[in-house]
Amino acid sequence: MAINAKNLLNRITMQDYNTNTVIRLSGIKYRYRGGESLDFADLEIPSGQHTLMLGDSGSGKTTLLHILSGLLQPNEGTVQVAGEDIYALSARKLDAFRGQRIGLIFQEAHLVKSLTVKENLQIAQGFAGAKVNNDRILEVLTLLNLGDKIYSYPSKLSRGQMQRAAIARAVINRPAILVADEPTASLDDRNTERVLDLLITQAEQHGATLIIATHDKRVKSRIEHIYQVS
């Protein structure tokens, strides 16, 4: 089944196509192993914009998110992030680029279980090639109300605390892009609001472009720009 996203509603307005484009996707096609393929509409997202990728489960949101995050190479097309054709980079450079410029948040926190909250943030700095900055770690954790959990292991955190720690890890390197995949999927309304607040606040505080992929329609009211995937 081929899903053509080109004709679908794209509510990114023309005035948003300013010169400061941070993500540019063109001619993206991806074929799954089973032969199923996806064609994605060209997309340009300006720096600092908050964009919602909305679509039902299985529509290809996550695939698109992985493609623009440098996690999944498309079969066709180019992906430019912060002016860099990321799939033209060597694997090693792409890894480093991802660590430095893209912050990823998932439905589950996926903190490294053997490391404390602080160490989870330290590896995020280290893998990105940055020097470990404990002041910065403390600053981010304090902002997210996790200052007292700095030496806690993930198993000792509540679900909400883990989610906040994952957000802290994503923003620790001041990424240009903050990508969240289904961050509210299993949350109630109150917690959905809290997580969205956090993501939007953190993106604004760090001047990051925020992209949220979700099928959760509760998120629609909080994000102005919507990219419909189906």
Binding site: G99, H110, K113, F127, R169
Partner: peptide, 18 residues
């Protein structure tokens, strides 16, 4: 049990070699 840990490390910039 650590497949997510390893995948997350990759998203954080860890190379395959690492």
């Amino acid at each position: 049990s650590r497949k997510y840990d390893l995948a997350i490390m990759r998203t954080l910039g860890a190379s395959q070699g690492k």
